[in-house]
Design a protein around this nucleic acid. Sequence first.
RNA 1: GGGUUCAUAGUUCAGCAUGGAUAGAAUGACUGCUUGCGGAGCAGCCGGUCGAGGGUUCAAAUCCCUCUGGACCCGCCA
Length: 665
Amino acid sequence: MIVENVINEIGRSLEGVLAFYNLTKSEVNFEISEPHVKDFGDFSTNICFLLAKKLKKSPFEIADHIVNTILPTNSIFMNKDGLIESVSFLNPGFINFKINNKVFVREFFKEVANNPKFEPENKNFSNSNELILIEHTSVNPNKALHVGHLRNAVIGDCLYRILRTAGKDVRVINYIDDSGVQVADIIVGFKHAGFSTKVDDQEVSKEKIKFDHYCGNEIYVKTNDLYKSRPDLEIKRKMILKELENPESETSLFTQTIVDRVLKDQLKTCWNLRCRYDLLCFESQIVQSNLWTDIFSILRDNEIIYYEKVGKNAGCWVYKSEKEGDKILVRSDLTLTYFAKDIPFAVWKLGFLRNPFDYDIYANQWDTSILYRTNIKKNRYKALEADSDFGNEPMIDFNRISKVVTIIDLRQERLQNLLVEILGKLGMDSKYKYLGYEPVILSQSSLDSLGISGEDKKSLHMSGRKGIYIEADRALSILEERSKVETRKRNPELSEEEIAFISKEISISALRYFFIKFDLEKMITFDINESLSLEGDTASYIQYAYARGKRVEDKNTEASILKKQDKIGNKIEILDFSPTEIELIKHVCRYDIELKQAGKNIDPKVLSKYLFQLATMFNNFYEKSPILKEKNELLANYRALILNSTLEILKLCMNIIGITPLMRM
RNA sequence: GGGUUCAUAGUUCAGCAUGGAUAGAAUGACUGCUUGCGGAGCAGCCGGUCGAGGGUUCAAAUCCCUCUGGACCCGCCA
C-alpha cells in the first residue's frame, strides 16, 4: 500500500545519496523510521549519523549538504505533485520527510476504489515451495486445559493465522503424549484406585461435567496424593508404563479409549477458542514407528552420542554438550529419557527420516477443515489411499519444509538448546525454531479464590498434579457471564439467544487478546478479576469500535453510490481533511507493513498493538468526524469511504488475532 | 554453586533486536463531554533518579561490566 511505496521511494533516493559518496547500502545500512514527534515529519532517517564516521564530518553538516545540495537533484523531491512535500534537517542530524497530505489522500481514495476489500494479490499458497510446520498446544491427555496452556495455544494459532494471511503454506501439529507417566497416573486411578470411568456427564455429580475436568480434578490430583500412603500404586504405575509399550495389550487398548475421551474434550476447549489443527501426532505411534532406532543408529554411528563405561553415567548413552554438560538419552535399563523421546519427533518434522505414518481422519473442526491423526502405515497401498484423502498432495510434503516452529514453555529452553545442538550436528538446525514463552502464574487473589495457600509467595506457578490452576473452560465461562450482564444491560431488546451468542464471542475474543498482548518473555500473572476486564486495552474495546462503525455504515449507503459513480479524485482538492482523518488513513495504510513485521519477528503482539492503535484512532475519528450528521454531502461521502476502509482493515486484523467482528454488542 | 532471564508511572505493561530528537499506552484517582453515528466511548489532568553504580559513545531505557532483588533451569523425573 501507499505508505510502503513512500518508504521504498525514500529508500531509493537515499541510496542515490550514498552513490554520490561512492558508498552502497551494504556499507551504510540506514533506516527509515517515524519520528516520535509528529511536527518533525512523517519519516526520518539516521543516514547522517552513519555517514559521520566515514566522512569524518558532523552529522548536522552532512544533513545540511544532503538536503540542500544532493537531494534537490532527485526528481522525486522536485515534483510538486509527488508524495513527498518537503525534506528538512534538524539539530543532531536527522533528515525528516513530510508527506504531501493532499496527494496522499487522493492516492488513498484511488486505491480504495480499486480494491475496497484489501484483498491480497495472490492466494494460491499450495504451490509455494515453502511449507511451515507449527506445533502448539501439546497438552498431556490426562486433564483439562488450564489458562497456562491457553497462552501456548493462542500464540500458536495466531502465528498460524499471521503466516497464512501473509501467503505462507502452513500446517499445524498438536503432539499428544499418550504413553507417558502423566497418562499412566490416571490409568492407575481407574484400574487400581477405584475411580469410575462412567461419568457420562451426570454420574459424578448432578451437574454436567466434562471428562477432561473429571480426569484432571478428581483422578490425577487424588491419585498423586494416594502415592504417599500407598506405595503399591507406584509399582502398578510402573507395570502400566511397561504394558503401554505393547500396543495390543489390554492396558493399551483401555488407555486409548481414555485418552480419546480426554482429547476430544480438550479439543472442544481449543475449538471453542477458535484454534484449529491439521494433524494430531501420538507419542505411542512414534514409539511404534521405530523412528528412534533409525535416529539412534545415525547418532551413534556419527559419534554424536556415546556409551559411558565408567563414572556416574556408566551404562547409559550420553550426549556431551560443551555448553550444557552431559545429557543422558538412554538409561542403563535401556529406557529412553524424556529428552530422547523428543529427538525422533523433531527429526521427523524436519523430514530427515522416512515418514512411517498414514493420516486418518480424526474429526471435523469448527472451521469445516478436517483434523487428521497419525497412524502407522500398515502397507504401501493403504498409504497411497490415505494420502489421497488430503486432495492430490500428501498432508505434509516433507520436501517443501522450510521451517519447523515449536511453541514451548521457556522452562524447557535448556532442553531445546540441546536439541538444536544435536540437530546442528545433523545439519538441520537452521530450519528448526523454538518459540519460548514465559509461563502463566496465578496472582494472590486468584489463589485466595481457589482456597490455595501460597505460603509466603505472592503468586504461584500452576501445577496440574497439585491442583493449582484455573481451567480454561472456567475462565471462559466467568468472562461469558460478565459479558452477558453487560450486553443485556446495553441491549434490553435482544433475545436471550442473541445475548448468549454475543457474550460468547466477546469472551472468546477477550481471552485470546489477553494472551497475546504481552511480550513472550514476560511472565503473565493471571488474576481472575483484573485479567478478565472488558475495558481499556482489551478485545472488547476493538470490537466496540468495529460495532459502532458498522452501525454508521449500515445507515449510510452513500459511500457505495459514490464508488459506483467513480467520482474519486474529482472534487477532492476542495475538501479539507482533518489531522485526525489523515492520521487514521495513514495508519490504515500501514497494515501490510505491520503484517510483514509480525511474520518476520514471529510475534503476534506486533499485530495486536497495531490493531489497538487502529481502533483508538478510529474511535477518535468517530467522535470528531460525523458522517450521518455532516451537512457537506461530498465530505460525508469521503468520510464514509474512510469508514469503509478502516472497518475492512479492522476486520482483517481482528480475524488474524481471533477477535470476532460483531455488528452489535 | 553454575547458567538463563526479568527490573520502566500507584498498578499492569509497550519501547531495547538495529543506541539518536520531548520515554509511550492501559488502568486507577480527579475534572469535563449525551436534544448530535451506540458513554464497553471521547477530551483533559495527575503520575518517571527507566532497580543501583560504573564503562563505551558526539549521543545510552537500549550496548558492556559489577552489584541488589525476583523468577526459572541445572535428575538414569516428565
